[in-house]
Design a protein around this nucleic acid. Structure first.
Lengths: 143, 143
DNA sequence: AAAAATAGTTTGATAGTCAAATTAATATTG
DNA sequence: CAATATTAATTTGACTATCAAACTATTTTT
């Protein structure tokens, strides 16, 4: 089995299972009701400032209609809060509740653990190779 | 920006968009009606031999009910053929039609290009390092 | 022969998605 | 300034993916 074949195997498996895997990691303990999709929305909303629907939808690459539904559910679950802009009353501003912020941090920790698990035991030089490969993969998909 | 942060950025972006990215690559020209999900089913069915529903469902990690629906659609689109086993008439055997095989090969080419894009300009030694890192990533998700 | 097990499909429910229609507010323009 | 156009978001209708559980048909076990 050559390197290309093996690379392909690993990537195919990752691609196919990535959502399930991420969901399994997210959906634990206090956050049983957060789907992988929910978490992507939470990530896109951001800790810091309230954002409007259109910009969040754009950064997720979905329509605002789709986002409306995701946000409805997140509001019902208590992770997200809706508000109206004072300057422009058409605009809906969404932000993370305290619970939403905690879930975000919990997920960040998962990411950090994952990165840690990958990077540990790799030398500086080895890390550099991985970085190079991932940047190329990223570029491949962007083109 | 350190390696950990950068790794996280790239992985998050890949995870979030992987389906869209793969679909964009698949769904071109003659294969406009093949979704990323369809392609996963086609990959699982395999070029060589007819397989029964249960084993295909297991390798995809879905229920047979889910697979029934996916196969219905793929049969309707002409990528997959259904048949009954002669030995055991409960068993449904699925296989790729000529069109299905062509789509599979088309998708394989995409994978090869992707791998090529990642691996090109990496020395043998660098490739080995990359393999090691991906095995770790894979293992992390499996555990 | 009757009962149990197995393979697959169907059903009923939920989530995610889009395009198009709709509503409400703001901006433009004649 | 009143009518029109644009914009932000929601709603609607349709579709796909998914699961668990009920069901059908067949085979295996007892």
């Amino acid at each position: 089995m050559n390197i290309n074949h093996m690379l392909n195997e690993v990537l195919v498996r990752l691609f196919r299972n990535i959502n399930v895997l991420e969901e399994r990691a997210i959906c634990t303990g206090d956050y049983k009701d957060v789907t992988a999709n929910d978490m992507h929305v939470i990530e896109a909303i951001d800790m810091e400032e309230a954002r409007n629907m259109t910009s969040v939808a754009r950064s997720l690459g979905v329509t605002t209609g789709t986002l409306t539904i995701a946000v409805n559910s997140l509001v019902k679950k208590g992770y997200v809060e809706r508000g109206r802009s004072e300057e422009d009353r058409r605009v809906v501003l969404v932000s993370l509740s305290e619970k939403g912020k905690k879930a975000y941090l919990h997920h960040q920790q998962f990411h950090e653990q994952m990165i840690e698990a990958i990077v540990e035991e790799l030398s500086e030089e080895e890390q550099a190779v991985l970085e190079k490969a991932l940047v190329k993969l990223d570029r491949f998909f962007r083109s």
